[in-house]
Structures are given as C-alpha cells and as structure tokens.
C-alpha cells in the first residue's frame, strides 16, 4: 500500500491557484522529487500533506487513511526555512524534537553521537546551536528530522545552502533511509540532484503538474530530440533541414534541438554524406533541459 497518496489536490489563495490538481503516490522505499521554480506550489503541497492547511479540493491518504494523530511519530519534516533554538545545546535540541516524535530520552542520548558522526557534524553534543556554522546547524536539523526513523520523510528544499560535500552526505543519508524502507518526498528548484536520488519526479509550474513519472519515463516522454554532432558543415546547411528547431554551438560540437526524433535521420544523412565524422549522438534531453523547457513554456 502506498505510504502517501495525493489525489487531485487544489489550493487557492484568494483568486490565485497555488496548487492545481496535483496527483501522485509514493510507495515505501521510494524517493519523489517535487521540482519547480519559486512559487510553483511545492511548500503549499507539503503544508497540505502535513495538515497545516486544508486543501480546497482533493484527498490525501496516509497508508490509505486520512491524517490522524497516529501518524505524527512516523513522519520526519524538514521545513524550507531552517530554525533551531540558538540557546539550546545540540543534544537538547535533537532530544526535544525526537521526544516529540515519541522517542525515548535514553535512546536519543545514545544515538545522537553516531548521527553527528554520520553526517560529519563538526560539533560536540554539548555545543550551543548558536556556535555552529550554518552548514552544521542544517545538518543538526536534518538529524532531528531523521533520527526517529520515520516512514515518511518530507524535506523542503533540503539541498539549498549546502556545499558539494554536504550535498553528497545528504544524498547518501536519503539513500540510506530509502534502503530502510522509508518513503521520501523532497522539493528542489532545479533538477541537479534528481537523477542521482529520485525514483519519481513531479514538476510543478504555477501549481500545475507539468511532468510526472519516473526519471526515465519523463526523459523518454520527450524522445531523442537532441543531437550532438561534430561536423565541418556550415550551420546554415543544418538549419535548412526541416524540423531542426535550434542550433547551439558548443566548444567542440553543435547541439541541435529537433522538433521530432525522426528528424535525426535527415541530420545523420547530411552530416555523414562526406564519410567519417568523430561524433554523432542522438539523446533525450537532460532533466535540466526538460526543466528549462517546461519552466519557460507558455502557460497556455
């Protein structure tokens, strides 16, 4: 049974529709990336899942049931804007949050050092939060989100503000939780981390779902509309082929965007007419390209 099912979710603020008919399901051991630019409706979707605000329309099911207090202890939530009590010690802060998730004090105390180690937090449990660097404070908050081994983990833009080392620590952490069977839903405003960590991808634009599916499905959905070719032919000649939408020169080769996968045959014929060429590669667009394509596309 899916851990989380979101069906036909709608939320309006006044006349503005922040979330517009959003659907997805999340199974145990799955990671879903909710991608969209600022204001796309990611946080609003999370707030409805967390029962902070009521949807205007649609349903949310936790293991088939509406949200009840029983779910609190199975949930881990990292808010978009991070915050901790500056005057508390690392240990007390994590203890407070973990106790609120139903963990025993003794268990928490025993496990905190291991978690600090795992996320390479450069702080002692007795250090005050205000003395931590921003990155370490973020990791402390992440530990507080995960320490009780939640079944559903909601991370609102967890990668933002992290340096590359911490980004990979977080990815590892997410994959560990996934292996333990947790379902994870996280948001991001770009596709950078989607490929490595996500099983599923939902992209929102102005509240609407513009993409939905596994990473492969999403990419294949566009077909192999990109051709990378290294040729001495003048660009004008390539541009003259019907169905070549755009040509972008890169360092060594050209990037051709096609209206249709089939146009690739015409391009191949033309560039191979003189025999040898070092590169010809036809691919689906990268997620980053899809993101730009979808984010930039007209609303209508």
């Amino acid at each position: 049974m899916p851990v989380l099912m979101v069906h036909d979710l709608v939320k309006k603020f006044g006349t503005m529709t922040a979330v517009d008919h959003v659907d997805f399901t999340l199974d145990p051991g799955e990671i879903l990336g909710l991608i969209g630019q600022n204001g796309a409706g990611k946080t609003t979707t999370f707030r409805m899942i967390l029962n902070f605000i009521e949807p205007d329309q649609g349903q949310i099911r936790w293991q088939g049931q509406p949200f009840t207090q029983a779910q609190y202890n199975q949930l881990g939530y990292l808010p978009e804007e991070r915050g901790l009590f500056p005057k508390m010690t690392v240990m007390d802060q994590i203890t407070y949050f973990a106790e609120l998730r139903g963990m025993k004090r003794a268990t928490i105390r025993a496990e905190v050092p291991r978690w600090l180690d795992r996320f390479a937090v450069k702080a002692k449990p007795t250090d005050k939060i205000r003395d931590l660097s921003k990155g370490n404070a973020q990791k402390v908050q992440l530990i507080a989100t995960l320490i009780h081994h939640p079944k559903l983990i909601i991370l609102d833009e967890p990668f933002s503000g992290l340096d590359p080392v911490n980004v990979s620590l977080l990815r590892e952490g997410m994959l560990d939780m996934k292996r333990e069977g947790a379902a994870i839903i996280y948001s991001d405003h770009n596709m950078t981390n989607v490929e490595q960590v996500s099983d599923q991808l939902v992209m929102l634009r102005q509240g609407e779902m513009v993409l939905n599916g596994t990473v492969d499905q999403v990419r294949q959905q566009f077909g192999r509309i990109k051709v990378y070719v290294e040729t001495t032919l003048p660009q004008e000649q390539l541009a003259a082929i019907p169905g070549v939408v755009r040509i972008t020169p890169r360092r060594h080769d050209l990037e051709l965007t096609l209206a249709d996968e089939a146009v690739g045959h015409e391009v191949f014929k033309l560039v191979t007419a003189q025999g040898y060429l070092p590169e010809f590669s036809q691919q689906p667009p990268t997620l980053e390209e899809i993101f730009k394509l979808k984010a930039g596309a007209d609303h209508e």
Binding site: F52, Q69, Y77, E81, G83, L100, A144
Partner: peptide, 17 residues
C-alpha cells in the same frame, strides 16, 4: 513568536496537535 520566527513551530506542529 520565537518558535514561529525560527520555524521551530512547523517542526513541532508536524509532531503534535
């Protein structure tokens, strides 16, 4: 206000009623 301002409120209210 402090809990709200530091967003601790969101974590707490995702833990308890």
């Amino acid at each position: 206000a402090a809990e709200k301002g530091t967003r601790i409120m969101e974590i707490v209210l995702s833990s308890i009623n």
